[in-house]
Amino acid sequence: MKGTLIVFTIPRSKNGVSPASYSKFYRKLYGYNNSSHYGRYHKRIPGFLDNYKYVKYANGVIITRTDASEAIVEFLNNNRAEVHHWDVEITDHEKKELEA
């Protein structure tokens, strides 16, 4: 089965990206856990990648199905990320993660 390996970075000081907007981007991409009322209530705020199946290897390195890669790459380009992507052959472990 084929998949797409996507590697991206957000240049912090170039292109006017501040540390606050850097953090905001990662929250928008991956989502985050929110708590309120001094930790009594917990809520998961979904990110863009929650709509797709993917395997995250490190910050900025994911593998996804080929049909979902176009939308993910477009999202990353719209948010001023430097993106590189390749079609790769995936292993059985990754296949289970992407099909589940």
Rank of each mutant, 00 (worst) to 15 (best):
M1S: 05
T4F: 04
T4C: 14
I6S: 14
I6T: 15
V7I: 15
V7A: 15
I10R: 13
I10Q: 08
P11W: 00
P11I: 00
S13Y: 15
N15R: 10
G16M: 12
S18K: 07
S18F: 02
A20C: 06
Y22I: 10
S23M: 12
R27N: 08
R27H: 05
K28C: 02
K28H: 00
Y30S: 09
G31H: 01
Y32P: 04
N34E: 14
N34G: 07
S35V: 08
S36V: 11
S36Y: 14
S36N: 14
Y38W: 09
Y41W: 11
K43I: 14
I45F: 02
I45P: 04
P46E: 00
L49H: 07
D50R: 10
D50I: 10
N51V: 03
N51F: 12
N51D: 13
N51S: 13
Y54T: 01
Y54E: 02
V61R: 12
I62K: 01
R65S: 09
T66D: 09
D67R: 15
A68C: 15
A68H: 15
A68N: 15
S69M: 02
S69V: 01
V73R: 03
E74D: 13
E74W: 03
N77Q: 10
N77I: 03
N77Y: 07
N78S: 12
N78R: 14
A81D: 02
A81M: 07
V83D: 00
V83N: 04
H84C: 05
H84K: 13
H84R: 12
V88P: 09
I90C: 10
T91F: 08
E94G: 11
K96F: 11
K96Q: 12
E97S: 10
L98F: 08
L98K: 03
E99V: 01
A100G: 07
